[in-house]
Write a protein that binds this DNA or RNA. Structure first.
Lengths: 215, 215
DNA sequence: GGATGTGAAGTCGTTCACAGCT
DNA sequence: AGCTGTGAACGACTTCACATCC
């Protein structure tokens, strides 16, 4: 084990391993090899071992890794052994879908608030779609509610024109993490962590490689 | 200009440049420097120049790049100078949001079909949310309709348990590109291009860096 | 003068190959 | 015998630094 700086790509792959391990556990598998993990995730076995070695020695030579054990370790490493409290800001179509996104619940994520500039406009539609009443608060209450409900992360699904302004409010509300679904490159103070999840970029990327193929 | 293999990260950044250039154009700016582009996108100026140099010499020494000119070039390079025809498969909450996602229209993307396993179940809700009637077809018609409507790309927003099965149908329907919103590592034949857009991975990543901070 | 384009240097991540443990 | 953990080799991307051209 070496406590070097861990590459961000390694962290991303850890999530992938975690999901596969969960699957293995549900299937009742008890042991997995780096080769098997690598194959399932489309990677090289040495890379899997290197990724894990950043954090300790979890395997047994000649055997492999215990599924349950590795699963728990990775969960802890990723910080998913505690609850993370999310707020969705911007309750348009995407925001509504995110409010409803069940995968968040499987991990230790919990959506504890929803905000919009015009809560009265969206609340009816949202309740309708979700099949239950939903509380959408005015964005002006962000700071107050963030403290009250201990919001850890803001999910930003507002229009691009509002993105920077809302990001500033998020920072102001002492929320340290932003999952940014807008195409805007947010400017935030040091210490605030932003990850971009705008998917047109991914689509553009797909198209680049697609354009050289005949159909 | 060197016609080397272009790194995928470069392609991703090109999308970012494209969006900033559009913004500049709308603001009426005519010229931009690599330093300015770099700053706006949070990168190093040399990197911007290297990225562009993979595809030609678009700049003018001592001046910079003409905004409109570079914009058009990048659009062409990325393959966005023609229309791309999308189908959304799996019309749950996310699928519905994607059907409604206006950003796709700004680029040369056009959603030409929607599929689900139970179209009759979702069609009412979707129409309601979109404020207009929407045609959701049964997944069995994928191959037929793909040919008819010249579908280029399938956007996969089905449950994980169905993902591989549906991906197989997409391949069978001669669609060559998949934007995968499921957490599943899809297995597809060579020549088919898959890009993953599952965002819990990004959230996990955010949390990793967040866990070391006090709140 | 000033910003591009680009070899060369530097940094970072991946893969190899094998020693070491079970 | 088999699979992990890891130095060393390799390859890829980034940044520097400067010659080049407008």
């Amino acid at each position: 084990m070496k406590e070097n700086r861990v590459p961000e790509v390694t962290i991303r792959r850890l999530s992938t391993y975690l999901r596969y391990l969960k699957e293995l556990e549900e299937r009742g598998e008890t042991v997995v090899s780096s080769a098997q993990l690598a194959k399932a995730c489309g990677l090289n076995a040495a890379q899997v071992r290197k990724d894990l070695a950043y954090f300790g020695e979890f395997g047994i030579r000649g055997v492999g890794y215990y599924v349950k054990d590795l699963y728990e370790h990775l969960k802890k490493i990723l910080g998913l052994n505690r609850e993370w409290r999310l707020a969705v800001i911007g309750i348009g179509n995407l925001g509504t879908a995110l409010l409803n996104f069940r995968d968040f619940l499987k991990e230790n994520y919990k959506i504890v608030a929803a905000f919009d500039k015009y809560p009265e406009k969206v609340i009816g539609r949202v309740a309708e779609q979700m099949g239950r009443p939903v509380e959408v608060l005015h964005i002006d209450r962000l700071k107050e509610v963030a403290k009250e409900r201990k919001i850890d992360i803001a999910i930003l699904s507002v229009p691009p024109s509002e993105a920077q302004k809302v990001a500033d409010l998020v920072v102001e509300a002492n929320i340290r993490g932003i999952l940014n679904f807008t195409p805007v490159q947010l400017k935030v103070p040091k210490g605030i962590i932003v990850k971009n999840a705008y998917f047109t970029t991914v689509l553009d990327n797909l198209v680049y490689y697609l354009q050289f193929r005949r159909r």
